[in-house]
Design a protein around this nucleic acid. Sequence first.
DNA 1: ACTCGTCTTTGAATCGTTTCATTTGTTACG
DNA 2: CGTAACAAATGAAACGATTCAAAGACGAGT
Lengths: 344, 344
Amino acid sequence: MSQTASIKDVATHAQVAVGTVSNVLNYPDRVSQRTKERVLKSIAELGFVRNDAARQLRAGQSRTIGLIVLDVGNPFFSSVARAAEDAATALGSVVLVGDSGQDASREAHYMDLFQEQRVQGLLISPVGNVGERIDTLRERGVPTVLVDELADTDRCSSVSVDDQEGGYLAAKHLLDLGRRRLAFVGTPSIRQVATRLKGAQRAVAEVPGAGIEVLDSAGQTVLSGRNVGNKLVERTPEERPEAVFCSNDLLALGVMQSLTMLRTVKIPEDIALIGYDDIDFAISAVVPLSSIRQPTEALGRTAIELLVEEQDNGGTKHRAVVFTPELVVRQSTAGAASQPAPAG
Amino acid sequence: MSQTASIKDVATHAQVAVGTVSNVLNYPDRVSQRTKERVLKSIAELGFVRNDAARQLRAGQSRTIGLIVLDVGNPFFSSVARAAEDAATALGSVVLVGDSGQDASREAHYMDLFQEQRVQGLLISPVGNVGERIDTLRERGVPTVLVDELADTDRCSSVSVDDQEGGYLAAKHLLDLGRRRLAFVGTPSIRQVATRLKGAQRAVAEVPGAGIEVLDSAGQTVLSGRNVGNKLVERTPEERPEAVFCSNDLLALGVMQSLTMLRTVKIPEDIALIGYDDIDFAISAVVPLSSIRQPTEALGRTAIELLVEEQDNGGTKHRAVVFTPELVVRQSTAGAASQPAPAG
DNA sequence: ACTCGTCTTTGAATCGTTTCATTTGTTACG
DNA sequence: CGTAACAAATGAAACGATTCAAAGACGAGT
């Protein structure tokens, strides 16, 4: 009992052939009631547990789906991941989550790993240039779905949210408040961030006299936000922007922390602040944070659906599903059209 | 090129035996330079990727460690998980994360799954009664480490934080502020929560005239907290507690949302509020939240270390590592000894 | 030329399943 | 009684890697 029993042990114990035990597990209808009972009893007595490695080896494919996200600590991704897991569980599959931490080499590491595991499919929020890699996987029958990134539909499917629209919504909202000197905080080296910035710039271009300054945060965390916030605090009031748009809520919360630390800057009166993602914590912030909401559950669920679609059509057809983000106004940009004295 | 190449294909292509290819991969020193080069070239040309299932089957064990947490969306667990992953990666292993959602059947599901995968070891924050299950795993050579739960060291190892001490610290702090009518918000059906409550009650018992009311939150999320908070708001000021201790920060943030929604209740003047876990968002709250900090990175890292220890000693010796939590005072309990009029 | 030792390479056996062509058993019908 | 039809059970082959005893190659020493 110290070692794990194999199907062969079960067969011996129940006095049947190994094939019969396998049938009991996989095609119970093919086995007579009596034999089935005897086999099940033996399984219970020996504490037999299927060896998934052997099963996979024979099947040539696993029941595993790989998911690579940029940061599991980010509620946006953990929410997407959870939705994907739930959808996968319903299909009898498991999701393996890898955290690339926005590092191309870690991303590659997880791709290697998943390929060795012969995953059914791959969901990925890419960092590096994974196009060729995806081509190889497709050729080998492993479909890929890009998550939170628009795909070239010649190559693979994708679920994403219209980032340019989100950026536009955010900036437009700030401009509608009467603010003209905006700042964008984020890391434009990340495509989503760059696209949000582009949307914001489009909104700014529509309003004469408006401008947007880009502050690279070198990271997407609360800490990075705090650093940027500290720099803003050091500026003279005239040099400070009238409104700040952060590329995600973590950054915005960090900026908020710095700005509210010294009581000199008031949100939203002096600086209006808006984030992105609308994570659960946004509403609990010092000043409840306005944000751009993304449908995370739908993203995760749809990603799995697209994967199934690809499996069904043999990876020949690809689809890009794009969701629309939504503006959520809270106190950090409330106080209708309160306009500080223009300076400069 | 459409199908994945096997080691046999590589052998044929490089005109060597399969054993040689295997040696190139696993014992490069045993192979001559010339052959090695030829084999590596074939591997590259065919795009060969090891089949992990076959490898595991032969090895009898995987390079996977299972981790079952109560809620991945909870920053406490996602932080522990990340630390565990990092430690595992350093050992060349992978961590498979399962989210039980505090549901015993989902927990059992993941245990089944992990057993089928023949994981190297199991890290688990148990919900249901998993004692026997752990015994079985141990007999089969799969070590288990309880995470955030004290283990019977006859059975397995554990990493945990002294919850009773944490509860004591929190309540003591509230009492030191002069508050006497305390409330505890949480789900005492969860052991950690019950233990924290016990610690709080111990602190209360030390102070004559002090009392603590228990409010079951039926959940550990921001939403559950908001529900409890709404009930508190409905009470007359005299009926409200003078201080609230929540069994985690998410609950506390929810309670805070409800209490601050109507401007009638002030934190900390009317109600002092303290949470548990000290998640990153605690500091960004409407009123920066006091909390009890737990060393999450140390928990995750140590869990893996204990697993390795068990593997080395063949699962014969077990150790229970207990960390000490730390009080973090912020504005939600600041305002030294401000005491509202005693009522009742 | 022969033996010994070292370094390389070989290829069959093995891991635990699933699959499937075959065999065995049972019932029904002419 | 023979046999067709069907149900149930069998067991060898295959999946793709690793392992290891054995064979082969080669040079040095006698």
